[in-house]
Nucleic acid binder design. Structure first.
Lengths: 174, 174
DNA sequence: TACGAGTCCTTGAACTTTAAACAAGAAACC
DNA sequence: GGTTTCTTGTTTAAAGTTCAAGGACTCGTA
């Protein structure tokens, strides 16, 4: 139930299109893997880097950006999180000394989040372990074809869920 | 950086195996899609069913179980969450009147989580909308081959992250 | 220049999750 | 029987996330 049509009745217009048994298996595998994986990486990073996976991702984005800085909104957009969440996250990272803020000169509303030297060091120190974890959990287990396939599939899914248009408080997350 | 080897140096034994540019793209697509998807479904269910995705999953598991009940530990194992998290979740669902607890007669430590009639009704009422959301976000966008592929891939990943052995507080989540 | 609408980011409260510690009972052992 | 050890499930506090609201600023337009 809840996913599958167990009753032997033909699908009608108003009858929801339940998942087939096979689709259901796919979906459950997805949920299971995604849950376990996120949990695994969160633990790994919490242990080795002292922060959850999302926060680590923020530092990575900053590290890749010119002058290691990004406007808050931009960072939020890249990381696919709300600005509110980002505000809290950056506050925490700031407390750790891994990020600092700076006012945007051209737009007084704006703030830059800037990766500090300490932040960069944390990244440099923990990146190898994290990459290893990702490899072990994902890439080492998949054939090149599967890796390629995974990339395509996730790209499609992500694309479909992308920010429609500008909205009240969530410009990109509808 | 942090994922890729940007330096033109040959990989050595102690040099971490950075992700190639292509692997990196795959990984980012995965993170992006997984983030957006979970967020999307959380919002959808919060709006239509008044609970986050994980909680909904718990009700589904119960609905599928004989006599609509499961031992706490078992439910936690199926849902891939810790028992602590489950305790909190069930407490909340109980407050909503969607789940009730019952002592296990054969093991006095044990507790059953049981789906109530109201819980079942919520599920029945909201399942179509949720299935629709899943279809729109995932299945409708993928070819049958891609669906199959996704299933295989996620099955492999999940399998690799499965509970190793019995451990202190997390018998299945190592 | 002044208005209104929209954007940028933050805040506080409510809620969820995590981590560590604990009480109670079962199981294994001797 | 009496330990000792493991398992079950909960609890507490801290950390993280969401939601709704709000202050500050920009921009378009009259």
């Amino acid at each position: 139930m809840a996913y599958m049509n167990t009753a032997p009745i033909p699908p009608s217009a108003d009858e929801p299109r339940w998942l087939t048994a096979e689709e259901q298996r796919v979906w459950r595998s997805y949920i299971e893997a995604a849950t376990l994986l996120e949990d695994h990486l969160d633990r790994q990073l919490q242990r080795d880097a002292g922060m959850p996976h999302v926060y680590y991702g923020l530092l990575v984005k900053l590290a890749e950006s010119p002058r290691r800085r990004l406007r808050m909104t931009e960072l939020a957009r890249y990381a696919k999180i709300t600005r509110s969440r980002l505000s809290h996250a950056v506050a925490r990272l700031e407390k750790n000394g891994w990020v600092r803020r700076e006012d945007c000169p051209s737009d007084k509303r704006g703030q830059f989040a800037i990766l500090t030297y300490e932040g960069y060091e944390v990244l440099r120190r923990t990146a190898p372990g994290h990459v290893d974890a990702v490899r072990q959990a994902v890439f080492d287990r998949l054939t090149p074809e599967q890796q390629k396939s995974l990339g395509e599939i996730m790209r499609i899914v992500a694309e479909g869920l992308q920010p429609r248009e500008a909205g009240a408080d969530l410009p990109w997350l509808r």
